[in-house]
Design a protein around this nucleic acid. Structure first.
Lengths: 206, 206
DNA sequence: GTGTAATATTGCAGCGCCTGCAAAAACAGC
DNA sequence: GCTGTTTTTGCAGGCGCTGCAATATTACAC
C-alpha cells in the first residue's frame, strides 16, 4: 500500500507546493534537452529525412524507446513546440489588444514564438532547411485549434474566429520564408497581414 | 535488339499518334480506378487511420507492391490529385481573368477542383471526415508550387505571387469546412476571400 | 540506513508504411 | 509462335511508432 494520502503524483504535488524540482525532474529536463539538441544538430547537418531516430538516440545516449517517451515524432523533437502556447499572459494581451481580431491574433501568435529561448536558432535552421516548413505547419495543427478557441472569445461568430486564424496562420507560413531574423515575429506578421490587405484591395472583381 | 527505331516508350508513341489506347493502357486505368474506389469506400467506412493499405489491396485485388506502383501513399490513392492542375485552358483563363491577382487565382484553383468527375463525392467524403483536410493540404504542396509559378506570370514580384497563393490556399482550406456542396467551388472561394477582406478591414491597427 | 511506493528507462515483439530488386506474368508487334 | 517491352508480384528490409513487461532509479516514510 502507498504512504501518501492523496491521489496526486509527485510532480503535481511539487508544482503545487512551489518547491524546487527534485533530482528526478531535473534529470527529465536534462534528457529532454539532450534529445532535442542531438536532433537539432544532426538534422541541421544531414537533413530531416536522412537522419534516423536511432542516430539521434545514439547521440543523446538514450534508448530509442525513451525517445518516444518524450516526443511523438522526429519533427516534434526537433521543433519542440510548446504544448500550450496560449498562456494566461497571452490571453490577457489578446483581450487588451487594440485593433481588429486579426491584429490581436498577430500579437499572440508572434509573441508565443518569439518568447522561445532558441527562437533565433530555430529561424536560422528553418531558413537553411525550407522543407521543414511543411513539417512545422502539420505539427502546428493542435496549436491552431487553441488559437481558434482563443479567437472565439472575441469573435462575433465561430466562423469569423476560424477565418481570422486561417489568415494569421497563412501569414505565419509566409514569415518562415523570410531571412531577416532580427525583426521580431510580431512585426513581421503585421507586415505580411498588411500585404494581404494590399493584395486583396489590388483590384476589385467585376 | 529492339524493333522500334526511337527511344520513346509505347505510351508516348501512342499519345503522340493520337491512337486509341490499347489493352495495356486500358488495364492500367482500370487498375488505378479499382485501387482508388476501394480506398474511397474503405476509408469512408472505417476512417483513414483504421484502414490499412493491405485491406485496400485486398479489396482492389492487387498486390500491395502494385499499390505503390500507382500511388505513393494511402492518402494519394484516396484523393487522387491531378498531377498537373494547371492545364493550358486554366492558364488562358487565368491571364484573361479580370480583377486582381487573387481573384484570378480563385478561378484557376476553383475550376481545377470543380472539373473533377467525382468532386461532389469527394466534398461529401471530406465533409464526413474532417481529419482529411490536413492530409489534403500536405498533399497539395506540389500543386501549390505550380500555382505559385503560374501566379508569377502576372505578379509584379515573386513575393507577391507567393502571397496571393497563400491567401487563396487559406481560402481553399476554409471551403473544406463548408457543407453546401452544390455551390461551385469558385463561388465559395470568392466568398471567403471577400470575408478575408472584411476581417482585415474590420478595424485598422493603431 | 532500510524498505516500499512511484516513476523512468530499457528491451523486445510487433504492426504498418514504403522502397529496391529481380523473377514471373501479360501484352505488343512482327 | 517469337521477341522485346511493360506490368505485376514476391521478397527482403529499413524506418517510424506503440504496447507490454522487466529493470533500474528516485522519493519518501520510518
Amino acid at each position: 500500500m502507498t504512504t501518501v494520502s492523496d491521489d496526486r503524483n509527485a510532480a503535481e504535488r511539487n508544482a503545487e507546493s512551489g518547491l524546487e524540482p527534485g533530482l528526478r525532474e531535473r534529470k527529465k529536463q536534462q534528457t529532454r534537452q539532450a534529445i532535442h539538441e542531438a536532433a537539432f544538430r544532426l538534422i541541421d547537418e544531414h537533413g530531416l529525412e536522412a537522419t534516423t531516430i536511432d542516430q539521434i538516440c545514439q547521440a543523446a545516449e538514450v534508448s530509442s524507446r525513451t525517445f518516444f517517451n518524450y516526443f511523438p515524432s522526429k519533427a516534434a523533437a526537433l521543433l519542440q513546440l510548446p504544448e500550450t502556447p496560449v498562456t494566461p499572459e497571452a490571453r490577457a494581451r489578446f483581450h487588451a489588444a487594440r485593433g481588429g481580431l486579426v491584429w490581436a491574433l498577430c500579437d499572440v501568435v508572434g509573441s508565443s514564438s518569439d518568447g522561445r529561448p532558441d527562437h533565433v536558432q530555430m529561424k536560422q535552421l528553418i531558413g537553411r532547411h525550407p522543407e521543414l516548413i511543411t513539417t512545422l505547419s502539420s505539427l502546428m495543427l493542435d496549436l491552431r485549434a487553441q488559437y481558434v478557441s482563443l479567437a472565439a472569445e472575441r469573435a462575433s461568430s465561430p466562423e469569423q474566429a476560424e477565418l481570422a486564424v486561417a489568415l494569421v496562420m497563412a501569414a505565419f507560413g509566409r514569415t518562415m520564408h523570410e531571412s531577416d531574423s532580427e525583426v521580431p515575429l510580431v512585426t513581421r506578421l503585421r507586415r505580411i497581414v498588411e500585404q494581404f490587405q494590399g493584395a486583396l484591395d489590388e483590384r476589385l472583381p467585376e
